[in-house]
Amino acid sequence: MTAQLEARPPVAPAPPRPTGRFSRLDTRFSPYLYIAPFFLIFAIFGAYPLAYTFWVSLHDWDLLGTDHPFIGAENYTRLLADTDFWHALVNTLGIFVISTVPQLLAALWLANLLNRGLRARTGWRMAVLVPNVTSTAAVAIVFGVLFGREFGMINWLLDLIGMDPIGWKSNRFASWVAISAMVDWRWTGYNALILLAAMQAIPRDLYEAAAIDGANRARQFWSVTVPLLKPTIIFCTIIATIGGLQLFTEPRMFHSGTNPIRGGPLRESQTLTMYMFENAFAPHYNFGYGSAVAWLLFALIAIVAMVNVLILRRLGGGSGPDARKGSAR
């Protein structure tokens, strides 16, 4: 034993830590250098285009012309007086409300279902993501056929129960419902998987403590799961808000046969992004006016997202230690 210990090579001492001014500068500024590439790319491809779009919105910017005179806030005043803008704003908010609320509730229910001991759970979890990876154009075409007035399956089912057929593409509210069904079908599974990942991070001892206190499965869901999922629910709500207020492909493809960029003959489902495209590009080519629409849409998304966050923070319990202590009561 003594011979083995003597045969081992001596351990080299640890190198001394660098000291001095260079070491302090490295400790202080190296983290900023690591994250600098992101901010550099964001400044080039995000912040600069955003600022330049605002600058363009202050000009009479015809894409087919070479002279772009400065007109100040004239595009914004003209925009606020345009009835087509307000019509598109109502359509956007209507489709957003009808699609987002059922989408998040269905995603929460589906995530809770997938979190249980189902057979072939991996297969079910992969299946709920299939609609999200399907081509948006293909989904819009299929839903356009399903909601057809004469030969659509939805109207055929309504006829079986004695209801009159609905003009899904000619009625304003009906087109909202059809487009919302398309959006919910595509994005419910995506949100469900995000909520499912958050559910699996909840400690199991909280459910055991709640069960000992006599809470059934439904009580555990509303008193333990939902409060601890609040940060994830806020995240899903913000993502759904950004996507819901920027709808373009679904309503445009839904009216692929009749004035697609106008959302139907009477602008039944024209959203703000479609209205912006109509004015910024063909047929008007007024890029300054379209930029003003884009900036008002940006402000709308920020306001709605902030309101959603404030509402969700006031609903239910917290997500910290206090919520965990009171969840099993």
Rank of each mutant, 00 (worst) to 15 (best):
I95K: 05
F96V: 04
F96T: 08
S99H: 06
T100V: 14
T100I: 08
V101N: 03
V101M: 03
V101A: 07
V101T: 10
P102L: 03
L104N: 01
L104Q: 03
L105F: 10
A106M: 11
A106T: 07
A106W: 01
A107W: 04
A107V: 07
L108W: 03
L108G: 07
L108R: 02
W109P: 02
W109N: 02
L110F: 04
L110N: 04
L110Q: 06
A111L: 10
N112D: 13
N112P: 02
L113H: 10
L113D: 05
L113C: 07
L113T: 11
N115Q: 11
N115Y: 10
N115H: 11
G117K: 15
G117D: 15
L118N: 09
L118Y: 09
R119F: 11
A120K: 09
R121V: 15
R121E: 15
G123Y: 13
G123C: 12
W124E: 09
W124P: 05
W124H: 14
R125T: 13
R125P: 12
A127P: 11
A127N: 09
A127S: 15
A127G: 14
V128A: 08
V128Q: 10
V128T: 15
L129R: 12
L129W: 12
V130E: 13
V130F: 12
N132F: 13
V133F: 12
V133L: 12
V133D: 10
T134D: 09
S135Q: 09
S135L: 06
T136M: 11
T136G: 13
A137G: 13
A137V: 14
A138Y: 00
A140D: 05
A140K: 03
I141D: 00
V142I: 13
F143C: 06
F143V: 08
G144E: 00
G144N: 01
V145M: 03
L146F: 13
L146Q: 04
F147Q: 02
F147A: 02
G148Q: 04
G148A: 07
R149H: 04
R149M: 00
E150C: 00
E150R: 00
G152P: 00
G152T: 03
G152Q: 02
